[in-house]
Design a protein around this nucleic acid. Structure first.
Lengths: 340, 340
DNA sequence: TTGTAGGCGTTATCAG
DNA sequence: CTGATAACGCCTACAA
């Protein structure tokens, strides 16, 4: 075990102090931005020395002693989903402005992976956590919160968990979209979603949809189709197409992943969209324009930004009451939902 | 300034040592996996104590003293590009297996942001760096490397920079695809790309394309269209469509971003694909299936995994010569490139 | 306005 | 096989 990674000796606060002819404390004050307690002359000398030596304070050491690691953990359910990516990008931009970095984790909607990650993040002493949770690690989240870790929930809420939440108004959006389809003249409408169990967003959307359908007297008892994977989509769509309920049909997809599956499935059946069936979907992926699909666009980037800003606000000591921020959803009407 | 974040006192190695009736050193050995120098009995006792106390070693403290921060920096040019996301996911999976975490940065192809980020990562004492570089911070990269920071380049190479590189065989893929289009009977073929300047991937693809066109006697002097933004795409496509060179036309897009722009632009001109023009593109985004586009699929997930594994290998002290890994590209033929 | 001393949680060194 | 002790680079009292 000889010197494997013999880093060119790092420039430390001690080097700067020595070179500038002051004490470490003074340099430390400079770093922490405690400007007003430094003589102008001293300030200048330190600034120059830092420049000259190309000194970079170690966030590691700062974190060990002080309060900040300058690390924010981001736990995402599915990092390949453009929805998550947009949030990530918003969070990233906001962090960068404040000198924080993002520790990104991808749980694949797997609660045990999520658990592992939260623990790892903890061991890195993250200053805050932004999480799109599976909803199966609530006890752990409570514990972290009790440990005074600021947490912001994005997209999905957690029952009885008092924290900042940044999401969209799912109920309203689902209701509006459903009523829109009904006004368009569709009579047999189904909502296709991934399993709703434990995921607030999915539950809210599905429930609001079901209520709207009910209110319009269009319920069939087979209105919400829960699917998990292509095979189940296949079966669900087949049954839907075969159902004998009269009138124009429409399918409402709960997110972009499902939307894509539905489109491809319909195509494999040789069904013409929108000739034979209307389509509407949550999320507004880049390909919606290509496929001319009516979608519900969420301000994903803004979700990331606002979540991060809530967090940073707390990190800076401004304690405000927890807030549930519901950003607006905007329908982008395209060719897939004509009046029938 | 009272106790803002008065963390419930963290369980430390000292607590474990005390509870287990051994010294900190011994516990440290346990943590570091130095198993063979522990009595079986001691081992068991420590394991139990750690369980009981729910102890989590602080990676921060470990990093400060020892060699590892267990942090790997990932610098991406564009995090919203599904291509990048897939790499990220591969890297993430590989890291998680080895107990490392990813510090993710998004440069938006902006060299000065890239510079900032590299410096920030350095201050977090990252153990390694995976970078999809803008190509404008080579000096800095050289410096980091001289500091013995293991670096793996993904997607894009850097001239005269000796390091591991994981990418695909761009030249071969571009050549093969171009020849495929020629065999299909297209006579006027243009390659649409984002600015190639400094980006090896783009340069290689464009060059190989130009050579293949040249070899086939199909060059017009207007074969590679460099575009930056929708406005330029608009102009380039218009000129291309108006060009009087006889024979079937085809457009070859340099990546998914350009591909999308091209498709939408053609649509706005009312051009039928593939009736009036053939289309082929690098990358294989999820919507290629919907739009029935022939594409060149890259093993993006694998790029992420292999890049990370190269890095981890070095972190574990296995010094191997640097390698340029060129993963294979696979053409996915769909309806957009019929024989004409 | 500046400095001194001690400690954050861990690992490396050197002894037993 | 196990332990004392001194770092790592910085921050926070407390003093001056």
């Amino acid at each position: 075990m000889n010197e494997k990674r013999a880093q060119a000796k790092r420039v430390t606060i001690t080097d700067v102090a020595k070179a500038a002819g002051v004490s470490k404390t003074t340099v430390s004050r400079f770093i922490s931005g405690d400007v007003k307690s430094l003589a102008e002359d001293t300030y200048k000398r330190i600034a120059e020395t830092i420049q000259a030596l190309n000194y970079q304070p170690s966030k590691l050491a700062r974190g060990l002693k002080g309060r900040h690691s300058f690390l924010i953990g981001v736990v995402l359910a599915d990092i390949t989903n453009p929805y998550s990516t947009a949030i990530l990008r918003g969070a990233e931009d906001a962090c960068h402005k404040h000198g924080y970095n993002l520790l990104v984790c991808n749980t694949d909607n797997d609660p045990s992976k999520e658990r592992d990650y939260i623990l790892m993040l903890q061991s890195h002493q993250i200053d805050g956590l932004i999480i799109n949770t599976t909803g199966q690690n609530n006890a752990l989240l409570h514990a972290m919160k009790a440990d005074h870790l600021p947490i912001v929930l994005v997209d999905r809420e957690v029952l009885n968990f008092d924290a900042d939440v940044v999401t969209v108004n799912n109920r309203q959006a689902a209701k509006d979209a459903t009523e829109f389809l009904i006004r368009r003249g569709y009579k047999r409408i189904a909502y296709v979603t991934q399993p709703v169990q434990g995921v607030s967003t999915r539950t809210e959307r599905a429930t609001a949809f079901a209520q709207a359908i009910q209110a319009a007297g269009l319920a069939t008892g087979q209105d919400v189709l829960e699917v998990d994977g292509d095979a189940q989509v296949h079966l669900a769509i087949r049954d839907f197409l075969e159902s004998s309920t009269p009138g124009p049909k429409a399918l409402f997809a709960g997110n972009a992943v499902v939307l894509l599956q539905v489109i491809l499935e319909l195509r494999s059946h040789g069904i013409d969209v929108p000739g034979e069936i209307g389509i509407l979907g949550f999320d507004n992926p880049e390909w919606a324009e290509i496929a001319r699909l009516t979608t519900l666009a969420q301000p994903t980037y803004q979700i990331g930004v606002q979540a991060t800003e809530r967090l940073l606000m707390r990190l800076e000591g401004k304690d405000q009451p927890y807030q549930h921020i519901h950003l607006p959803v905007k329908m982008v009407e395209r060719a897939s939902t004509p009046a029938v």
